[in-house]
Design a protein around this nucleic acid. Sequence first.
RNA 1: GGUCUCGUGGCCGAGUGGCUAGGCAGAGCUCUGCAAAAGCUCCUACAGCGGUUCGAAUCCGCUCGAGACCUCCA
Length: 499
Amino acid sequence: MGDLKIYNSLTRQKETFEPITPGYVGMYVCGPTVSGESHLGHARPYVTFDVVYRYLSHLGYKVRYVRNITDAGHFEEEGREAEDKISSKAVLEKLEPMELVQKYTNLFHWAMRQFNNIEPSIEPTATGHIVEQIEMIKKLLAEGYAYESNGSVYFDVKKYASKYDYGKLSGRKIEDLLETTRELEGQEEKRDAADFALWKAAPPQHIMRWQSPWGEGFPGWHIECSAMATKYLGKQFDIHGGGMDLQFPHHESEIAQSTICNHTAPVKYWMHNNMITINGRKMGKSYNNVIKLTELFSGNHPLLSQAFHPMVVRFFILQSQYRSTLDFSNEALQASEKGLKRLFDAYENMLKLKERVGELTDNAGDADLDAKVRRLVMELEGFINDDFNTAKVLANIFELVPIINGIKDKTVPFNALSVDTFNLLSAQLKLFLLDICGLQSVTEADNEKLKEVMNLLIEIRKEARSRKDFVTSDKIRNQLQSIGISLKDEKDGTMSWSI
RNA sequence: GGUCUCGUGGCCGAGUGGCUAGGCAGAGCUCUGCAAAAGCUCCUACAGCGGUUCGAAUCCGCUCGAGACCUCCA
């Protein structure tokens, strides 16, 4: 068994994964901001790190997977006007931020289930950790790396940079950062433009606010992740994941805060997934080109030619390497839809063959084919170990498809494979397809009554065909097709169907 | 403007020095009452120009093009 190699954004190279505490892995992934609906772009990190979680668990590590819910900040919802926040209205008329947060958290969880993502071990909320964040800010003040200004607290980047490498993660030079001037609100409160907020004093109309030693306010943009990661994973933990767009300033700032508070760099392996693009451009709020997950699953969006099943989207994501951009298009999703179906048809064929495994012996009837199957299967582990290259894993499995289908169609004799090889094949396909990649068949043909009705129709059709009554047999098949059920005549005279 | 990344066949997308990635689409064939599916075969690309090398999609340089980050952003 080879070693797992992970591309570490911090060192810009692939490194052999060695957990800080043998047998255990701490992993933190930046979760959603629940002020709105998740879109296709958000799906990528959650699917990517779900596979990371699944694989590390498979390797036998006890993984604590922490993914936060950002539910603190400046919250508004479209359609509910800003005036709602003003206190002259009755309580039930006003925008209640927690109501919003609850709504979008529920929707997020629903989407994660659609993707077959395993839920994290801990899913901490920012609002539930205000105390921890305040404590951390106090510590930063005590260490002399933060300062208060008009009820807000800022991190002193210049001071930090004089001793530590601010910009190491994102490849930035501190001089450039200090030169870059930005026209932002509250800039004059900062000693330096590069400083970032740890605590912000809340203006009167701000709806989310907490009492702090510096007055009423709310936490800054980066502190929640540092506080919660430290609390649940310790001062040093193994993996921190998130989108590439978070590398700077979010993750860079996390490193700075944690380093000062905990007197050690927080993360051993930084992992960043690349963006999903649309027409070559990043999908994002500011570009106005997002496709929400609810729209994607329903097909209800002007850019969509049809609805796409969540499993198709998962498969689409896993067909690329997570560090490459992935370009959305209807054609690309349709290709994934067909590919996924072909893959799972073959997988189900393999399961049927498994029932006949008793026919096999220790001898392979076709040594070359047997060797090819073994090679394709044995290579899978190396691919997943190479920085989670699910694209290569799936490509190899696709090469196994014609072999499995050939056996099923009897153009290849079953006993071409030895019993060992077949068992290896079936075990590894289940492991990689279902357990590690987390894929499932799209067909939901598990309704018992429907099955019985279909069996009845198949019986009638078989009778009609035996009488050469093709009018009746075609009618059954064509009408089923029109309601979305495909009936196929197999080579051995049986019929199969799929939705 | 600064920093960085990328440019692969009709589309998506692996791949970092030598061997057909893979998927989808397309063409032909086989099977079949027909259809669908499946199997077999074909389509063999690496932005351009130089350079390094026995050999480059892969390394170096330049040119062109696209994008990301520098601001909330997966």
